[in-house]
């Protein structure tokens, strides 16, 4: 039952913020829309900009697990399948949370999940409804 609830309401944990590049027009997002992005079902923002997912490399990411329903290894394999079948583009990676913020700030259409205590600069926080 827990996994059923998780599937329907893939909210990120409370100590995590959803950040996007400042060029993204959207100001808020639903939990379902967030899951659709991380599972490759939504590839474009409302303005038509291509969604670029940014994640931490080589780490266990509970927020990613919660939002996508996949652990880091499954998530990587899942996106490799999309990339090599021509149906998606591989998420960009950063080595730490600070670099992840910089990556989102410098990449059009980028989105990432970052700890709430990480200083933010040049990015926009998306409100999860």
């Amino acid at each position: 039952m827990l996994s059923l609830v998780r599937g329907l309401h893939a909210n990120p944990p409370a100590n995590v913020r959803v950040i996007v590049n400042e060029g993204v027009r959207d100001g808020s997002i639903t939990a379902t829309e967030l899951k659709n992005i991380y599972t490759g079902r939504t590839n474009y923002w409302d303005g038509g900009e291509h969604v670029v997912i940014a994640v931490l490399s080589d780490s266990t990411d509970e927020a990613l697990d919660e939002v996508s329903g996949m652990d880091a290894s499954e998530f990587r394999t899942f996106w490799q399948r999309l990339v090599f079948s021509g149906r998606g583009e591989e998420p960009r990676t950063a080595t730490d949370a600070g670099s992840l913020v910089e990556l989102v700030a410098s990449t059009r259409g980028a989105i990432a999940l970052v700890p709430a205590d990480v200083p933010l600069k040049g990015v926009k926080v998306l409100h999860v409804k």
Binding site: T77, Q80, R81, F84, S85, R87
Partner: peptide, 9 residues
């Protein structure tokens, strides 16, 4: 079917 070549997958 569409990722038969992809051993990684």
């Amino acid at each position: 079917n569409d990722i038969q070549d992809l051993d990684l997958g």
